[in-house]
Amino acid sequence: MLLSNFKIGQSGKVKELNNLPVLKSRLNHLGVIEGVKVTLVRKAPLGDPFQIKVRDFYLAIRKDEASKIVME
């Protein structure tokens, strides 16, 4: 299951971050690491980007990047 396939309101834990050379460390620093709970809050009008909730704050992330986050 990928984060990009989540339905709005669905939560899950991050299993791994794939193929994200540039963004991986930035996501990590923001606390998006293996095992953290992520909730898909909403999608923007064109279905991209996504708003996710992680560790008590909100983050905007594009579909491309979300499709590289593998969820448990």
């Binding site: 963004l23 996501l27 704050f57 905007a60």
Partner: peptide
């Protein structure tokens, strides 16, 4: 593309 990550405060 450096990607887009933005905190929504």
């Amino acid at each position: 593309n450096g990607g887009f990550l933005m905190e929504i405060p």
